[in-house]
């Protein structure tokens, strides 16, 4: 096990694996995402109370889900950076922070669009919405801090500490709707119970969540490869790779 873990630290090894994985992630993910969204937006039944406006969940929920998962993955990578000083973990954090920020923004934006007709307001400072906004700022903070320190090693450590400190926000987002009175409704999906939603609604939702995970995996691989090429530009294997592709 440790051997795989140490191999993972090698950018060259990762580059090869990622190239093999990426087409699968992209095509399977895109197929699931498109199927889930088309099914959800076009064919799933209306909600008895909200009518068609509830359909925004087929975008809102996957985006919000991923936004938090990406942050947790970044925190794990941050831990690896601090304890094992693995360069690839830092590459991961740099590569996915903007993706996480976009997903968080998408969740906030679609939530606001849904909130206007459903609640009667675009925005309210309740615990769920506010903690999600903090997540967006954490992503911005990670990106800004990473760009502000030019020394690669100290930059990696500073970013990792920020990511780890910010991970406290994740359980707050998750449990905000249970700990406090909020306007945002509690979770429809719980690990221990059946979803309080018919299968014709949750199956397409599940499809789009899984599809977005795979698409995220593809995007993470792609962005990590780019970051690796930039960082390892002077090494022999990158030069050979570039020459091989050039021909």
């Amino acid at each position: 096990m440790w051997q795989i873990f140490h191999k993972l630290g090698s950018p060259k090894w990762f580059f090869g694996i990622a190239s093999k994985l990426m087409p699968w992630l992209l095509w399977v993910g895109a197929a699931m995402l498109v199927a889930g969204i088309v099914w959800g937006l076009g064919f799933a039944p209306k909600d008895y109370l909200q009518g068609n406006s509830y359909r925004i969940i087929f975008i809102h929920v996957p985006a919000a889900f991923l936004a938090q998962s990406v942050y947790i993955m970044m925190a794990v990578a941050g831990l690896v950076t601090l304890v094992w000083r693995m360069k690839l973990a830092d590459v991961f954090v740099r590569a996915v922070a903007p993706v996480g920020a976009i997903l968080t923004f998408l969740a906030l934006f679609t939530g606001a669009v849904w909130g206007k007709p459903t609640w009667g307001t675009w925005w309210i400072w309740d615990a769920r919405l506010t903690s999600m906004l903090i997540l967006l700022f954490l992503y911005f903070g990670v990106m800004a801090l990473g760009a502000a320190i030019s020394d690669e090693k100290s930059s990696a450590r500073a970013v990792a500490v920020l990511v780890l400190v910010g991970v406290v926000n994740i359980p707050i987002i998750k449990y905000s709707v249970e700990w406090w009175n909020t306007l945002h409704q509690p979770a429809t999906f719980k690990l221990t119970e059946k979803p309080s939603m018919p299968a014709e609604m949750w199956v397409p939702l599940l499809l789009s969540v899984l599809g977005l995970y795979l698409i995220f995996g593809w995007l993470a691989c792609l962005r990590m490869q780019t970051e690796i090429l930039v960082r390892e530009g002077r090494t022999r294997w990158v030069k050979e790779l570039v020459q091989a592709r050039g021909n």
Partner: peptide, 15 residues
């Protein structure tokens, strides 16, 4: 100001 609070339950109109 009165805002509506939606619950976590979704149902099709037929059900």
């Amino acid at each position: 100001q009165v805002l509506a609070k939606h619950d976590e339950n979704y149902m099709s109109p037929e059900v």
